[in-house]
Simulated scan of single mutants.
Amino acid sequence: MALFSAPPASAKDKPLKVAAVYTVPVEQQWVSRIHIALKAAEARGDITYKFSENVANTDYERVMREYAEQGSDLIFGEAFAVEKAARKVAADYPKIAFVLGSSFGPEKPNLSVFDNYIQEPAYLTGMVAGKLTKSNKIGMVGGYPIPEVNRLMNAFMAGAKEVNPDVKFSISFIGSWYDPPKAKEAAFAMIDRGADVMYAERFGVSDAAKERGVKAIGNVIDTSKDYPGTVVASALWHMEPTVDYAIKQVLADKYQAENVGPMSEMKSGGASLAPLDPAVVPKDVADLVMAKEKAIKDGSFKVAVDDKEPKPTM
């Protein structure tokens, strides 16, 4: 990871004052990972934690600036549409540590960036989907065709194609990070065209799959308990390595602007495949997937990072 010079500061004592600003509810997949990791750090006594959710993009800078004025030691920003605002605030408060979801680089002295590099378990879930589809038609519903979504979809598609070269894909982006009804309607349309496995990058897709009796693949969080028999595999994102690292660096007076995105990879504990339920995933399929997971972990197989917008093939 690239390191840059840190601002002068004195070492901090526990608990750190930590804040986060979210444009969506904390239940939403992406921000729920940050929120849960920060709540765990709070429960350990490492931090105090304040957050704001459902903040409008136009109000983001004001809310983040208020947390900075309140004396926060560490502030987590969300991503993408609010990036310009977050970077502006970080530049105005060089002695506060900022961590931002971003496709772009860190900004010295105090802005680190993270990302959800969970393409490896996404590939494994694609293998499950490719084996379970009977129609050879898979539907995929995403939020926006940005790199963080594209790389997961492309990895999923590659995994499915490895085990089933005949599989075809429908792809739709709903233009929202949190609109379950819209995602559900997009999924219904694909199921009506023959898709019998759905890639649920957004909330709402698994609901459609459950109602129509088809299978779904989860993304970022494990919803199999909410959709038993429907969600058959999930690629999970764990923000704990990233969050805990940032806290540790601030406490030790070693915080530096850097790209902490690699902490979201499997080798760092930032990504995993949810346990496969033998009631819905046959043993031969699970064995195939586990063998590939082993190859990923020992470095003998590399999952490509493909950030280009995925294209439908049906």
Rank of each mutant, 00 (worst) to 15 (best):
M1A: 08
A2Y: 12
F4A: 15
D13A: 14
L16K: 00
L16M: 04
V18C: 01
V18E: 00
Y22L: 12
Y22C: 08
V24D: 10
V31G: 00
V31T: 06
R33A: 15
I36M: 11
I36K: 13
A40D: 07
A40M: 06
I47Q: 01
Y49Q: 02
S52V: 15
E53H: 12
E53V: 11
V55Y: 10
A56R: 11
N57P: 13
R62Y: 11
M64P: 00
A68L: 09
E69G: 07
E69F: 13
S72Y: 04
S72A: 15
L74I: 00
G77V: 08
A79S: 08
A79C: 03
A79Q: 04
K84C: 05
A86I: 00
A86D: 08
A86L: 04
V89I: 14
A90H: 04
A91F: 06
Y93I: 12
Y93P: 06
V99P: 03
G101S: 05
S103T: 11
G105S: 06
G105T: 01
P106M: 10
P106L: 11
K108W: 14
L111M: 13
D115N: 11
I118T: 06
E120Q: 13
P121Y: 07
P121S: 01
Y123I: 07
Y123P: 03
A129K: 01
G130F: 03
S135Y: 13
G142C: 09
Y144A: 09
I146P: 06
P147V: 09
E148A: 10
N150P: 07
M153Y: 07
M153L: 11
N154A: 09
N154Q: 13
A158I: 06
A158P: 01
G159F: 00
G159E: 02
V163R: 01
S170I: 09
I171P: 03
S172Q: 14
S172Y: 08
I174H: 02
P180S: 08
K182I: 09
A183R: 00
D192Y: 06
Y199H: 11
A200H: 04
G204V: 03
S206H: 09
A208I: 11
E211Y: 10
V214K: 00
K215W: 07
A216D: 02
N219P: 08
K225W: 06
D226C: 09
P228A: 06
A235W: 05
Y245H: 15
K248H: 15
L251Q: 07
L251N: 05
D253P: 06
K254D: 07
E258G: 08
V260L: 15
G261S: 15
G261L: 01
P262E: 04
M266I: 13
S272A: 14
S272Q: 12
L273M: 06
L273K: 04
L276H: 01
D277E: 08
D277C: 03
P278C: 02
V280C: 00
L288Q: 12
M290W: 12
A291V: 09
I296W: 10
K297V: 10
D298K: 12
D298E: 11
G299R: 13
V303C: 08
V305Y: 10
V305L: 13
M314A: 12
